[in-house]
C-alpha cells in the first residue's frame, strides 16, 4: 500500500506540468501508464508526495509524416500495435512493442515513453529507441529541447532529464533503413536478458544491444561490413570488448549476458542480411 500522503496533480499545459515538477522537486514523480511506478509505490520502493499525471495534456497521438514518426508520451504499446500507419512507417517499433513482457494488461496501459524514461536495463524500449536513432522531445522549465536517445541514458534507471523536465514525444526518423532484431529471454514472463537491433544504412552498420549493460550499448561495426555481410567473428570480438561490465539482475548473471551478446548481435544481422549466423 502507498504509505505516505499523496497529492495527485493533473496539469493542463506542459508549462504547468514543468512548474509542478520544479515546485515539488525531489518529492514528485511523473505518472505515465503507471505500470512500473504504481506497483513500486505499493511496495514502498518509491516514496513521493506528489504525482503529476500527464493525461490532462492529451499526448496520445501517433503522427506519421513523410520524414518522421511522432509517438506522443501517453501512447501505449497497444496503440502502437493497432496503428497501421506506424506499422508501415516504423515496423521495428511495432515489433518491439509486440514482444514486451507482461501481456495484454501491460500493453494496454504501459507507454513507450514511460519505459524510455524508466531506463531499466532489463527492458525492451531503451535500446530499441537508440537502435533506430529516435529523438526524445523534452519539455522543461526553459521550454522544449530535443535529445537523441543515444545521449539520453546515463546509467541504470538514470537519464539526462533535468528537474522539471519530462518527455512530450518520441520522434523516429523515417529512413529507408531496415532493421534486424533478436531477443533472448527465459520465458514469456521474463524481462529481456539480451536484445539486439541491427541496422545498415548508407554504408554504415550498427548494432544496439539492450539488457546486457546498464545503458543501451551502441556499437558501430561499419568497418566489419565493407564487402557484404558483417564479419561474424569480428562482430563477436567487437561486442565483447565493448562490454566490460555486463548487467546482472535476479534473472541472469552478467557473465551469461556477456557470453550471448555476440550471438544475439550476430542473429540480428543474420535476419537483416538474410545470411545465416
Amino acid at each position: 500500500m502507498i504509505r505516505t500522503p499523496l497529492r495527485y496533480h493533473r496539469p493542463r499545459t506542459p508549462d504547468e506540468a514543468s512548474a509542478l515538477l520544479v515546485e515539488h522537486r525531489g518529492d514528485v514523480a511523473v505518472l505515465g501508464g503507471g505500470t512500473q511506478l504504481l506497483p513500486q509505490m505499493n511496495r514502498d520502493q518509491v516514496h513521493v508526495g506528489h504525482l503529476v499525471d500527464l493525461r490532462g495534456l492529451g499526448l496520445r497521438r501517433i503522427e506519421v509524416t513523410d520524414d518522421q514518426v511522432v509517438v506522443e508520451a501517453l501512447v501505449t504499446y497497444a496503440d502502437v500495435l493497432l496503428s497501421r500507419d506506424l506499422s508501415r512507417a516504423a515496423p521495428h517499433l511495432r515489433r518491439v512493442a509486440h514482444g514486451v513482457t507482461g501481456g495484454r494488461q501491460i500493453r494496454n496501459t504501459g507507454t513507450l515513453a514511460g519505459s524510455a524514461c524508466f531506463a531499466m536495463p532489463g527492458s525492451d524500449m531503451p535500446a530499441a529507441l537508440v537502435g533506430i536513432d529516435a529523438i526524445l522531445r523534452l519539455h522543461g522549465p526553459d521550454g522544449a529541447r530535443e535529445v537523441r536517445a543515444a545521449d539520453f541514458y546515463v546509467d541504470a534507471f538514470t537519464t539526462v532529464l533535468r528537474p522539471g523536465e519530462f518527455v512530450l514525444a518520441i520522434t523516429i526518423p523515417r529512413t529507408a533503413a531496415r532493421t534486424g532484431y533478436c531477443k533472448v529471454k527465459h520465458s514469456s514472463g521474463s524481462w529481456p536478458i539480451a536484445t539486439a537491433t541491427a541496422r545498415r544504412l548508407d554504408g554504415s552498420a550498427t548494432v544496439t544491444l539492450g539488457s546486457v549493460h546498464a545503458t543501451p550499448l551502441h556499437v558501430d561495426v561499419s568497418d566489419l561490413a565493407s564487402n557484404g555481410p558483417v564479419d561474424r567473428a569480428a562482430l563477436a570480438d567487437r561486442v565483447r570488448s565493448a562490454l566490460p561490465a555486463p548487467w546482472t539482475d535476479v534473472l541472469a548473471p552478467g557473465d551469461y549476458r556477456a557470453r550471448i551478446a555476440g550471438v544475439v548481435a550476430a542473429r540480428a544481422f543474420s535476419e537483416l542480411e538474410g545470411v545465416p549466423a
Binding site: S187, G189, W191, V250
Partner: peptide, 15 residues
Amino acid sequence: VATQFKHYLTPRAGD
C-alpha cells in the same frame, strides 16, 4: 532475492 513474479518465473500459457 525473488520478491515478485518478475523475479520468480512461473510458466505462462505461451511457455
